[in-house]
């Protein structure tokens, strides 16, 4: 039982707890904050796996930018308190059915993998210390150039879409 393994279990409990908190809290500001905590614990997982770049990007992009925008929208719309509201009659059985399906699938995969090899190397067993900015950049721009460019075009299209949607037509008041 080394230190990394203890840290892993503590973080695993924290990640599951924050995810549960996100689902169960009735106040959507609290739900968003639970999600931020969840992102932070996942970032520490990345650090444990020896990927500091991914960890910090996770914090900057997800916790720092996207979740702030979520909070912004929640507060701007005043949608903090979820109403008790009606539940769609078919929603609950469908959700239970799909969740059961997912569990069965995950269990089957786990069972199959267990028979061939160990699922994963033990956390912290071999730290990939080569994940520097240079190697990452080289991999992105050589080996994965096409997916990288496709992603950038997708993001550009989304950006243009947002601008077009919010553009004011001349003479029309906002």
């Amino acid at each position: 039982m080394n230190l990394t393994l203890i840290l892993f279990y503590v973080l695993a409990v924290a990640a599951v707890a924050t995810a549960t908190g996100l689902l169960l809290s009735r106040n959507s500001v609290y739900a968003a904050l639970f999600l931020v905590l969840n992102f932070a614990t996942v970032a520490i997982f990345y650090l444990l796996l020896g990927a500091p770049f991914i960890a910090l990007v996770q914090v900057t992009v997800y916790a720092g930018a996207i979740m702030v925008l979520f909070l912004f929208v929640i507060m701007l719309l005043g949608a903090e308190k979820l109403p008790r509201g009606q539940v769609l009659p078919w929603q609950r059985p469908l959700a239970i059915g799909l969740a059961a399906l997912l569990l069965v699938e995950a269990g089957f995969l786990l069972y199959q993998r267990l028979q061939t090899t160990a699922i994963l190397a033990a956390p912290g067993a071999e730290l990939n210390t080569t994940a520097t900015l240079q190697t990452l950049g080289m991999a992105l721009f050589n080996q994965y150039l096409l997916p990288f460019e496709v992603t950038s075009i997708l993001l550009l299209v989304a950006m243009i879409g947002a601008i077009v949607l919010t553009k004011q037509v001349k003479g029309e008041q906002a």
């Binding site: 910090l56 990007v57 914090v59 900057t60 916790a63 720092g64 930018a65």
Partner: peptide, 9 residues
Amino acid sequence: LYIMSVASI
């Protein structure tokens, strides 16, 4: 990057 992420938090 650490500075960026702390600043964004």
